[in-house]
Amino acid sequence: MKQLPPEYYSELEEIQAADFVIVELALYLHTHPDDLDAIKQYNEYVKLSKSLKKAFERKYGALTSFGYSFARCPFDYKEAPWPWQV
């Protein structure tokens, strides 16, 4: 059973951190729609999150299925480890 390399976890944490900032800023922007700095930061983190995910998925396969990520051949989305096994 292939073991995951250690950098898998650090890269995943980077993605989680970027997504958390996006969630926080999105909730903030719901009540502060004209806060330009927050909007700039939000877009910056969306760009960062997309690039992190793209690099991550090229290395370790799809993060999500049903059209959010490209598939590989053979289709390995169902292979271990599943998210809760990581």
């Binding site: 980077e14 951190a17 970027a18 900032v21 926080e24 983190y45």
Partner: peptide
């Protein structure tokens, strides 16, 4: 703000 990883 906290940096991203610390915020997480």
């Amino acid at each position: 703000q906290f940096p991203a990883l610390a915020a997480l």
